[in-house]
Design a binder for these strands. Structure first.
Lengths: 135, 135
DNA sequence: TTTCAACCTTGACACTATGTCAAGGTCAAG
DNA sequence: CTTGACCTTGACATAGTGTCAAGGTTGAAA
């Protein structure tokens, strides 16, 4: 009943066929059952899982974190605090990335604002990079 | 006169010995001269270049962009507008990253705020990941 | 002078997440 | 039966960095 091939699974889930094979290989997902000729076959439940994975990936979760989330998703005995903890750890990482990014942006913006551009070789940006101190 | 080995060059520049070899191999920097026994020897000018590279890396420039910047840095005929253009392209990328990050953070924050935590298996975060639509 | 530690060399393999390409098997339609 | 679209596995690539192994070098102490 309604088992689909890898290409269709990729289309429906938004995860590439390549990544479906990869996720299977690293054990993130259960190996798909195979047709007589060896083609992978995906059930609707498997597709739901794949969509979950893609969404988690869109939120920037690492493969390891997604693995944790999948286990929790499959576990009816889970404590929602465990899920929350994974999410909070990730949020923390995202905040740190954001801070680093904001730092880079402000430094770069200042450098750019001090460079008049044009044909003059004298360039504030190059000088600043030479002399800057990392935050 | 004051040629130093790779370990000392790494210490002075903040670029690891491994990366010094790597940058040489990919052609980002000129091959270092060698001692009789084959050790790489770095001049003070080379160290300045390495410090420049580290700073550029701290600003998030890619290796390819750093390569461009190094060429411009070495070219007395450069137009500062060229440097500015590289910097502006990078700034643009950083802004895009920042937007993606901000999106992720706000989605994640909303999910987290809707999950009470505790031992209850009922988890808003998992549900939201299942049903979310990527921005 | 021998020895030992600390350094250097190259090369290989690892990571993350994804793409691409090649050589070959399969399926469905004409 | 051929053709095209699909599937298979495996290998290699990306970017930036780390680690490990096997071996040569250097300088200082014994």
């Amino acid at each position: 009943m309604s088992m689909i091939n890898i290409g269709e699974a990729a289309r429906q889930s938004g995860v590439s066929a390549k990544m479906l094979r990869h996720y299977e290989q690293i054990g993130l997902i259960e190996p798909a059952t195979r047709s007589d000729s060896g083609y992978r076959l995906y059930t609707p439940a498997a597709i739901s899982t794949l969509i979950f994975i893609r969404h988690a990936r869109d939120l920037g979760f690492s493969t390891a974190q997604i693995s944790d989330l999948l286990h929790l998703r499959n576990d009816p005995q889970r404590a929602s605090s465990e899920v929350k903890s994974v999410a909070e750890d990730h949020l923390q990482e995202l905040h740190e990335q954001q801070q680093r990014l904001t730092q880079m942006i402000s430094m770069l913006q200042e450098m750019i604002s001090q460079c008049p551009g044009g044909n003059n070789p004298d360039c504030a940006i190059l000088k600043k990079i030479d002399s800057m101190e990392a935050s």
